[in-house]
Simulated scan of single mutants.
Amino acid sequence: MVRKAQTAEAGRTPQAPGASDAAQGMSVKARTQSQLVRSRFFRHRGALAGMFLLTFVVLLAVTSIGAGPIPGWWDKGPVRTSDIVNGGRPTLGLWPTFLGGGGLHLGEHPFGQDNIGRDYFAVTMRGTQVSLVIAVIVGVVATAIGTVVGAVAGYFRGKTEAVLMRVTDLMITIPTLLFAAMVAVMWGNKGIVMLGLVLGLVTWTQTARLVRGEVLALREKEFVEAARSVGTSAKRIIFKHLLPNVVGIIIVSVTLAIAAAVLLESALSFLGLGVQPPDTSLGKIINEYRSAMMTRPWLFYWPGAFIISIALSVNFIGDGLRDAFDPRQNRVRN
């Protein structure tokens, strides 16, 4: 038995000290890029909190009053009026019982009623829906334009880059709110989709500069030179080789553009230059009831709270995506 044990021991392959640790390290490094990005993102507490908050706001806005032909669970609509009860004050109760409250209850009008008796919860949900739709359209359009402009300028250089970047610099020098107001006056009264498209045309400059910087660093890499050497067209190199390598920048730009679009649309609607009647948005709601700020402050609290919630949550998600896609970030461990 002793001889068999010695023989088995002798037949084993000797391992260097720390070999098991190295093997474990190799298994960790074998994870794909998408797995690393996902791991970094879900370790970012702010991004998770923002994702949960944004999901809650979207689900609440869509399911409460419904969207299009889909009905909601709330029995009141944003245009239906009724008698004003108790001065239109909110009936939402949030105080727990042990603090002298009645616990959580919605009541007849949880957000109160406006000046003409509409349920303010339904009005706020409709405004949230419109603001979200415009913000998403602006984010997609601005990112698409900025990505194409930045990629073309960074790849071709020379006169092409000079012309495109001078146009970009010119648009940057014009105050965004002023330029957006001018565009909204001309085309903003044709619906929320058109308003989102025209706002996207004035908010793409930051994305263009970011993408251009990344493409400038990538265009001299070996895989781009190899593609050129076999006669690959410039269009295919840009869209098949360069842009997939800057997808992290593009995704982050989308989130940041959406957050900025929420505030920009709210500012324009507050000035009366954004969403036009009969539709509404969060900024337009605040503008309609600004004269009641001192007497009925809840008419400002609720739409303002939703504007802040959407902007902060999207910003936190963008911050988490930036840290996840950028391996130089050290705040989130792999």
Rank of each mutant, 00 (worst) to 15 (best):
L218T: 04
G154S: 10
A23C: 12
P303T: 05
P327W: 03
L170F: 01
M293T: 15
W74E: 13
G320K: 10
T91V: 12
P78C: 12
P327T: 08
V262S: 10
G272Q: 07
L271Q: 06
V332K: 10
R45F: 00
M165G: 01
L106C: 04
R43I: 03
F111V: 13
V252D: 03
N189G: 09
A10W: 03
L243F: 15
S39N: 11
L104F: 11
G304M: 00
L256V: 01
I145C: 03
M186H: 02
I310Y: 06
I249Q: 12
N334R: 15
V252F: 06
L178E: 02
V224M: 05
S291H: 06
V152M: 02
Y155S: 02
A19Y: 15
A135Q: 13
S253Y: 04
P17N: 11
Q24S: 04
L282V: 05
V198H: 00
G102C: 12
F41K: 15
F270C: 04
M294K: 10
V2M: 07
A261H: 10
G191T: 09
K76M: 08
M194K: 06
V149G: 12
W187Y: 10
F52I: 07
L256A: 02
L273E: 10
V136I: 13
T173D: 00
W204D: 05
T280N: 06
L53C: 12
A259Y: 05
A135M: 14
S291A: 09
G68A: 09
T160N: 03
R296Q: 13
A261R: 08
V163M: 07
P78F: 08
A292S: 14
L271C: 04
V136W: 06
G50F: 13
A208D: 05
R228A: 06
A257M: 09
L242Y: 00
V149S: 13
S27T: 03
I174V: 01
R333S: 07
A10P: 02
F156R: 04
A261W: 07
L268K: 00
A19Q: 09
T63L: 05
L312R: 06
I307H: 00
V275M: 06
R166W: 01
A144P: 00
A261K: 10
V252Q: 02
E265L: 11
I70D: 09
T124R: 08
D114T: 06
T13Q: 11
F306I: 04
S82A: 06
I84A: 07
R3W: 02
S229V: 05
T81V: 05
L178D: 01
V57M: 14
A180G: 00
L92S: 14
A30F: 00
Q329L: 14
T147Y: 11
I84T: 05
H241R: 09
V28W: 15
